[in-house]
Structure formats: C-alpha cells, structure tokens
C-alpha cells in the first residue's frame, strides 16, 4: 500500500457517545484522558440516562485525523467503567442538539430587534425585565452560534450553553 494511502491527514469532527457507570470520578477519567494525551474537546455533556442500571451517557465532540479518533475511541474503551463507545458521525445518521440560555439587556429599537430575531430562531423568552430578556434556544451548534452572534450588537450580556447532546436516528440504540 503506498504511503499516501496509509493515513488520512485531514482532521474531521467526531461526536462520541460514551456509556459509563454512574460512579464518582468517571468523568474525571474521561476528561483526564483527553487532557493527558493532548486531544481536543469541543463540547462535553454528561448526565445519568438509566437510573436502574446506574448508567450515564457522556457526549464528546472532538476532532482529529482518522488515526487520532480511532485512538481516542480505543483509549476510552480501555477505561474500566466504560460500557460502550460509539462515534455517531461514522455510525450513520444522527441528530445533534444543544440548548442555550442567552441574556440580552437593551432598550428601544435594539430590544424590539432582539425579540424579532428570537422569533425567527424560535427562541423562547424565559425571563423578562424592563431592560432585559433571557432567551432559551435549542438547535444545532451552528444555529445557536448564529443566534448569539446576532445578539451581540443588540446587548448580549451572558450566554450559557449546555453542549451537544446527540443520538442516532432510527430504532436502534448505540
């Protein structure tokens, strides 16, 4: 095999779902793996998903060459309380969503404009004062980033984003 075919040099995104025992320290193991080995984390979410079985699901968005992503998957699989590791990007079609709370403080035209844009993005107002709104917006990363960018000149004060939650399409589990 020619050397050129042996490795794909271009980096790609991976959205990795990791099913773990919900026990103290398991998140530290996963995060420590990324920092210790110099991998990137673009987004990280974690919560218990099966109380009876005591399982949590961690969703990590990362990027790297095919070789690096395969290495990340193998290293994750090696952690003792890890049950399953799945790259949703290569497995097939999947859905990714993020939720953000966006605080905008402004008055007059800017306040009206913020509300109008929020309507276009289907963001909901979850808190309102005379001088501010808190919007709740759900969607893809790009959509949320676009919304935050548009709010910036309109009095953006604070953003809190959850990070990506992702799941495969169709009837099967990961």
């Amino acid at each position: 095999m020619p050397a050129a075919e042996k490795k794909t040099v271009s980096a790609r995104k991976a959205t990795i779902a990791v099913l773990v025992d919900n026990e103290p320290g398991v998140l530290a193991r996963v995060v420590g793996l990324f920092s210790g080995r110099g991998y990137n984390i673009d987004s990280l979410t974690v919560n218990e998903v099966d109380e009876a079985a005591g399982l949590s699901r961690i969703t990590i968005v990362t990027y790297g060459t095919e070789m690096v992503i395969a290495q990340i998957m193998a290293q994750l699989q090696r952690i003792v309380p890890v049950h399953r590791v799945c790259d949703l990007v290569t497995q097939g079609l999947h859905v990714e969503r993020e939720l953000a709370l966006v605080k905008v403080a402004s008055s007059g035209d800017k306040r009206v404009e913020a509300l109008r844009i929020a309507d276009i993005f289907r963001a909901r107002v979850v808190d309102s004062t005379i001088g501010s709104f808190v919007f709740e917006i759900t969607g893809s990363l790009d959509k949320i980033s676009a919304f935050v960018d548009l709010m910036r000149p309109l009095g953006l004060v604070d953003v809190s984003r959850t990070g990506v939650a992702a799941i495969s399409r169709g009837p099967d589990p990961i």
């Binding site: 490795k7 070789m67 193998a74």
Partner: peptide
C-alpha cells in the same frame, strides 16, 4: 520499515495504530 506490511497482535486495542499504521 517503509516497505513492509505489518501484522500486529496486541491485547490492548489502543496499542494498535497508535504510532505506526498496521495492515
């Protein structure tokens, strides 16, 4: 080992293709 095809037996999947691509 530029000209070789490589077989790698290892119990640890993360050892495979970590430094060197194997066939």
């Amino acid at each position: 080992s530029p000209e070789s095809r490589k077989i790698h037996i290892d119990i640890d999947a993360s050892s495979i293709n970590k430094n060197i691509h194997v066939d």
